[in-house]
Design a protein around this nucleic acid. Structure first.
Lengths: 135, 135
DNA sequence: CTTGACTCCGTACTATAGTGCGGGGTTTAG
DNA sequence: CTAAACCCCGCACTATAGTACGGAGTCAAG
């Protein structure tokens, strides 16, 4: 078999044609050889490659980071430690983001509660809280 | 007093000149009158307005949403309920984002742990987990 | 009166992850 | 043989929140 055409790859991986081209330009998907007519002939592994990208994205890695991750998987010898270190860094990032959002959640929750408590008397406590000491 | 000049406003609010122009274009900061020389003369409240924007941003509101929030504060009568409803919606969004990140955190945590457990024997469990059933 | 600081404006660029478009060539089914 | 369906490419555009640039006008000090 000669390989998959772009549309085939896109359908199997569940992405758009344009996204496939985009990944190719970004170097996330190896540039495939061309058939006589200029059509790209993707090796079947390309689909797996794209699924890898999708899963890594779901874990919060950016395309650039995914590129690095893929780069650590060079030739036969995989730099497992490098991968782990990156996963740990991403984990720390995610944890920090969770802390940020928790702070936001509690502030927002308090604001809403205050608003509910006071009923429709006086002025909006939410806007008041956002306002600096009004002149 | 005639009002503040752009640089003055930017310094007091702790933003850049360009950001101020940007907020003005977006309608987040009311278009100020001009002095004879064409310079903008900002009312002092502009600084408070920008601080409002900054705080709302810290709570996760986008500039567009902040625009809506500001719009609810029309004339004398503030639509407190409208504000609360939006705060509640934002709270729900934040909570969902937290849940997403928690899922990510646990997956990432497990991957890292597996990697640490298995030492440097065999292949990288993290990459393996991202890889679909390898051909 | 010149220099430096400040202001104006429109335009373009940054990062992220794609999407959409138009014009062309190719392949396949009827 | 023709028409639909597929493929190619480059370029432009989406959203978000600004930042940067270049040229020009203005203002205050020396």
């Amino acid at each position: 078999m000669k390989g998959l055409r772009s549309g085939e790859v896109a359908v199997r991986a569940g992405i758009g044609l344009e996204a496939l081209r985009f990944y190719e330009r970004r170097g996330l998907v190896p540039v495939p050889p061309r058939a006589g007519n200029g059509y790209r002939e993707f090796p079947v592994e390309t689909v797996a490659r794209i699924r890898f990208i999708q899963r890594a994205q779901q874990l919060g890695f950016s395309l650039e980071e995914i590129g690095e991750l893929l780069g650590l998987r060079v030739e036969a010898d995989v730099d497992c430690e490098g991968v782990r270190v990156r996963a740990e860094a991403k984990l720390a990032e995610v944890e920090e983001k969770i802390r940020d959002l928790e702070r936001i959640r509690s502030t927002l929750g308090e604001l809403v509660q205050t608003c509910l408590d006071q009923g429709s008397s006086g002025d909006c406590p939410i806007l008041a809280a956002l306002e600096p000491a009004q002149k």
